[in-house]
């Protein structure tokens, strides 16, 4: 049904999701599910070690936010350093995908 996401790709996806808007862990999982049209599956708990590591590296920041209703949630935000790192990862990913596509004999992968 879906392709299991390699653990190494999770930080990149987290940064990409947070580039759209700040979000808490559950919401990040839902966006990944939705935006990949269910093509990417992950064990949602594995988001949390990745979030901790990204925060340690300064690419995201976090804070407990009190909504109007319901309990406080820990919301993550992309930092400027994170934005830069995401651009680097995106560039590397496209270069990698292009190289594989070329070797597979297909046309260059169209970029969004």
């Amino acid at each position: 049904m879906g392709r299991e996401l390699p653990r190494g790709d999770i930080p990149t996806l987290i940064l990409a999701v947070l580039a759209q808007a700040p979000a808490h862990g559950y919401a990040i999982a839902r966006v990944i599910e939705r935006d990949s049209a269910n093509a990417l599956r992950l064990r949602e708990g594995s988001l949390y070690p990745a979030l901790r590591a990204l925060e340690q590296q300064g690419f995201i920041s976090s804070g407990w936010v009190e909504p109007e209703r319901g309990p406080a949630r820990k919301v993550y935000t992309l930092t400027d350093a994170g934005r830069t790192d995401l651009a680097r990862r995106a560039h590397d990913w496209h270069a990698y995908a292009d190289a594989v596509a070329a070797l597979l004999g297909k046309r260059e992968v169209a970029r969004g």
Partner: peptide, 13 residues
Amino acid sequence: RQFGRPERIGRQI
């Protein structure tokens, strides 16, 4: 099941 194995997640965190 969707969240994953607690031993592994705890260890990674």
